[in-house]
Design a protein around this nucleic acid. Structure first.
Lengths: 365, 365
DNA sequence: TTGTAGGCGTTATCAC
DNA sequence: GTGATAACGCCTACAA
């Protein structure tokens, strides 16, 4: 065992728990393990059940079209052999797989992660494999990914954002699969949409600051994408309500809490005559609040802070952070639901859902 | 635009930026869009280039085996048609795809997310599609996922953890693909390993508390998995160094910061005669520190707190949280590197890498 | 260096 | 309700 500090030269082995074979009871039978790298084929099952391969295939996909007796025999044969459909071959022939792909612009975001849980909770029980990829806020990567979809043939795709490149929109349409965009409320979504208005979010921030009596405000946020939309709404509110938008501190990327501190410092350098700041995302708001405290600025008396996005930390901080946000988990769940309806061919009333924005006031304003 | 508060009935449309076609310059040519849902085939490219399909296939995979002149013609034809390899068909025939799958036990974890970025940074430039799934700390789901791998035939798989079920280990071995386990240091990894000793992490926590003069300590953490390993090391350190391990507060799952608060409350109910607590993960440590502050406990004088796992927040809190952790990004990067070596058939010196644990002392101890 | 033949495992199509 | 046949798009094996 390590005996003196930082980096033990001889790490102790972890005695990881090992669960022996077949001791866990599942609802379904745990099939016997495949023999060797090549598992049972449709043909093997068919031979065992005394039917044609195509009948086994049907028994799996459309059991109602197979006679009861044979169905039973086939099911037993499947259990015996541990047969698993080769989804590659299946997808190649049918042109559609059971994979649903979600692409996150940032895999580290708490909100996106929550949404993914919501979607998975809906899609996985329905038999889809839910996998996640990242675009890292890069057009370049987004394009590569979307190109690759053409041959991966997922059943559906989901994005935490709106596709902006016309080329990519075209490519996605050409796939002919359900697509959900989220996290914004554009006029013309590609296909399905579960989102909210970032413009309104900015407006709400301005309105709240005004209602709380602040008059000289600042914006901290990303220059592009949803940041720009939130800024637009914020500017509009300031103009209408008569707030002085003293300072817009913009950046290109937000990677961590530390960025919030940096932007706040920049703000304070540019102007000290500001009584409230709207931080256009959760990390920025948390970072700004911490930096303010480090500098002994009293929040909210010296500077009020409102953020967008919700985050577990917001409620836990002192003072609590006032945040505008959406229920990300629910957003993900609904996105999954919309996809499911499409995939099942249910006639759809609406293909666009709006998520309500909520403002949770805490101590920071 | 929303005019009064919480949930606007008529959300404002976001005027999302739209980037028109062909205005972005990439290093490679952006191929023209595929015509219709069915893109160009190997055969189409071959016809255009005046060669056999197999030659095109080779030009893509082993260009050195194709004559220079034809290679040029083929490449032009590929660009013209916008041909994209159908990875399904390719994988079906060759028995191997270019997808690398990583499974996270918890998609919301900051550390896991960092590791994924590290892996992606290595694997994606090498031409692999890096996708992420979740096991949600469930044996059941893990089993389902591993079964499905059989037919998805990824090039390799990665887990943020060690596979504990013997059945699943068997299934994974049968796949015959590179496998990386991480986040622990077991005696007998399935294949590749990039990990650290959780047992040592627990030991280090005990050692640190001892060195700082604390004598009556508590453990807060998960009952199973890595929590149990960290507890084991912590217990050992306490025994050897003469610390009184007054209280072990255990739980089954950790989902959010709030759980840390709950466990701390439980601790305080069970015993007030404790001068330091080791929280076996980042959320627990953050939650416990916050709860302590809410209760006006002075940290570290009334209660010291040390956590495992690192987290952006740890350094930002007041007092800063002393944490033991690993460089998750680097861990992910190395895991990706190991996989790449395997996939490329590079003879490997070692298939097991140990990541150093580091203790960062901050104000909380 | 290039090409031919055949098949990966499944499912669409069309007969029975 | 069931089965024979062909084909999805590519790549391995072998031959030229």
């Amino acid at each position: 065992m390590a005996s003196d500090g930082q980096a033990p030269d001889n790490p102790t082995f972890d005695d990881v728990v090992r669960v022996p074979r077949q001791t866990l009871a599942y609802d379904d039978n745990v099939a016997p393990l495949a023999q060797g790298p090549r598992g049972a084929l449709l043909e093997d099952v068919a031979r065992l059940a005394g039917v044609a391969p195509i009948t086994v295939s049907r028994a799996i996909r459309q059991p109602e079209k197979v006679g009861a007796e044979r169905l039973a025999r086939i099911r037993q044969a499947i259990a015996q052999t541990g047969y698993q459909t080769n989804s590659l071959a299946s997808a190649l022939k049918s042109g559609r797989s059971n994979i649903v792909l979600a692409f996150l612009s940032n895999i580290g975001s708490q909100q996106f992660a929550l949404a993914m849980r919501g979607s998975a909770q809906v899609l996985e029980p329905a038999g889809y494999q839910f996998l996640i990829g990242q675009t890292s806020y890069s057009y370049r990567k987004e394009t590569e990914i979307i190109k690759s979809l053409h041959s991966l043939r997922p059943a559906a795709v989901m994005f935490t954002g709106v596709i902006e490149l016309e080329d990519n929109r075209e490519r996605l349409r050409a796939l002919g699969i359900p697509i959900v965009e989220t996290w914004a409320y554009p006029r013309d979504p590609l296909d399905l949409l579960v989102g909210f208005s970032n413009t309104d979010a900015g407006w709400m921030a301005g309105e709240h600051l005004h209602a709380r009596g602040y008059r000289r405000v600042a914006f901290l946020g990303r220059r592009g994408g949803r940041g720009a939309l939130r800024l637009k709404g914020f500017r509009a509110a300031c103009a209408v309500l008569g707030l002085a938008l003293v300072c817009e501190v913009l950046c290109d990327e937000v990677e961590s809490i530390a960025d919030g501190g940096k932007l706040l410092m920049e703000l304070l350098e540019r102007s000290r005559d500001v009584d409230a700041a709207f931080c256009a995302n959760d990390l920025l708001a948390i970072g700004a609040l911490m930096e303010a405290r480090h500098r002994k600025l009293a929040v909210p008396t010296d500077l009020a802070i409102i953020g967008f996005g919700e985050n577990d930390m917001a409620a836990e901080m002192l003072p609590g952070l006032t945040m505008i946000g959406v229920d990300s988990f629910e957003l993900g769940r609904r996105a999954g639901d919309l996809l499911l309806q499409r995939l099942r061919g249910v006639p759809m009333g609406t293909t666009r859902q709006h998520m309500a924005l909520t403002l949770t006031q805490r101590g920071s304003t």
